[in-house]
């Protein structure tokens, strides 16, 4: 009997800013195509249903969990699953930058972005509500065996506590849907500054948490800001299984094998040796330590 597998596809799209109908139609077609190619899980970029620099458009393009847009994408995913990026409006009218798991007849918000960047060219806290937790979700792979998936949306990845907490919940695959702007053109970096940062982080998380990592970044230009793509899938030893893609729309796919996880965790048993007790006692000490940064 072969080891359990998960067939994963990352879509790299260029959404139309604020055009929910057009983006949904395009996502439905590409998710259905990825499913036809055999994907068990399809990952889309951050806010793939809406575009990123929405500003006051946020309430106009928000969807609700039981609304027609997510239902249509769930139908497109059929017997498979897709993680789609959307603005989700809660029953009490908060708007979250969220990852929604659709398919198999269901629609579930699996993550609400916790860290909303509000500095430099970002302004998310003005328009969006922050999530308050990192929780893995179990999904079935190619043969029905469960895979534990954790989601960190873009800026969430810059805070190591999120991936770490997901790892402690048994995460096999870390998914990072992203809308990362292209910036940093200094000579000698071998590419964009923003791409170099993500490359370093993705490799580090894959190796330090010995998990698969899927990065789904968007492309296109919004209000003068370009997005650099570079979507990819890494193994739990940071080997590149698919991608990185360039700056054009497209997709990449890989078959994740449970045996790869096992081998990586035998070779580098950092998860086995993790000391949650040390972290917890350290956190308890911090509770009584001023967190004002001094001064």
């Amino acid at each position: 009997m072969s080891a359990p597998r998960l067939r994963l596809a990352c879509l790299q799209t260029a959404p139309r800013l604020g055009d929910l109908a057009a983006n949904c139609a395009q996502l439905a077609a590409t998710i259905a195509a990825a499913r036809a190619d055999g994907a068990d899980l399809v990952v889309t970029p951050e806010l793939a249903m809406t575009g990123y620099f929405l500003r006051d458009l946020v309430p106009d393009v928000a969807v609700v969990v039981d609304g027609p847009e997510l239902a249509a994408l769930s139908r497109a995913a059929g017997d498979g699953l897709a993680l789609v990026g959307a603005v989700v409006e809660s029953r009490d009218h908060r708007f979250h930058n969220a990852s929604v798991l659709v398919g198999r007849g269901g629609v579930t918000v699996v993550h609400r972005k916790v860290y909303l960047p509000t500095y430099g060219l970002f302004d998310e806290q003005r328009y969006l509500a922050a999530g308050d937790r990192f929780t893995v979700v179990e999904i079935p792979g190619a043969d029905g065996a469960a895979w534990r998936v954790g989601v960190c949306i873009c800026e969430d990845l810059w805070h190591p506590s999120g991936p770490w907490m997901l790892s402690r919940q048994g995460m096999d695959l870390l998914v990072c849907p992203s809308a990362s702007p292209a910036r940093g053109v200094r000579a000698g970096l071998g590419g964009l500054g923003s791409a170099a940062s993500y490359q370093a982080m993705l490799r580090t998380y894959a190796e330090c948490l010995t998990c698969f990592v899927a990065y789904g970044n968007r492309v296109g230009v919004e209000d003068g800001v370009g997005f650099w793509g570079g979507s990819r899938i890494l193994g739990p030893d940071a080997t590149v299984l698919a991608g990185p893609l360039g700056e054009e729309p497209g997709g990449c796919a890989a078959v994740l094998e449970r045996g790869h996880l096992r081998r990586a965790r035998l070779a580098t048993p950092v998860l086995r040796d993790e000391r949650v007790d040390v972290v917890l006692s350290g956190l308890r000490r911090l509770e009584t330590t001023p967190q004002d940064g001094g001064g």
């Binding site: 053109v185 200094r186 000579a187 000698g188 970096l189 071998g190 590419g191 964009l192 170099a196």
Partner: peptide, 14 residues
Amino acid sequence: DEPSADPLEIEPAL
């Protein structure tokens, strides 16, 4: 890769 010592030096193709 190491960034250029001159912060204003750009990667023209990029």
